[in-house]
């Protein structure tokens, strides 16, 4: 049951990412000027809407990516104890990346 719930979350984050990444790309590329210039980046960083989009992208992307990696590794029929270690390692790595990555847009917004 736990694995089913994790898999359903994988589907939900996948569908969410389709729209979030699509919005991220379309709005960035269609905005006036070079999207990676300092002015464009600073302009987006000052917007609360972009901040919310970045945080959702980060949560959905990290969950989808790390759970996908876990699925690939678990398919190799690894024993129970290493599987438990893998779960905790991926959780810690995910939280560390989230902490680092969420600090950047929040710092820029403030």
């Amino acid at each position: 049951m736990r694995e089913t719930r994790l898999k359903i979350l994988q589907y939900i984050t996948g569908i969410g990412l389709f729209f979030l990444v699509g919005t991220h790309l379309i709005v960035s590329l269609l905005s006036s000027g070079e999207p990676t210039s300092w002015e464009s980046v600073s302009g987006r960083a000052a917007s609360a809407g972009w901040l919310a989009l970045f945080i959702f992208l980060l949560i959905f992307g990290l969950y989808h990516g790390i759970h996908g990696l876990r699925t690939i590794i678990m398919e190799l029929s690894i024993p129970k104890l290493p599987a438990k270690v893998l779960d905790w390692t991926l959780l810690v790595i995910g939280l560390a990346i989230f902490g680092y990555a969420v600090y950047i847009p929040i710092n820029a917004f403030l």
Binding site: G65, G68, I72, I97, A101
Partner: peptide, 26 residues
Amino acid sequence: GLGLLLYITLHLAMNGFRLGGVESWI
């Protein structure tokens, strides 16, 4: 999927250069 995961990791690391200011970003 693995390629995109690698890209996201590099993308997030690259975004960290924003903290260094405009020169670092350019």
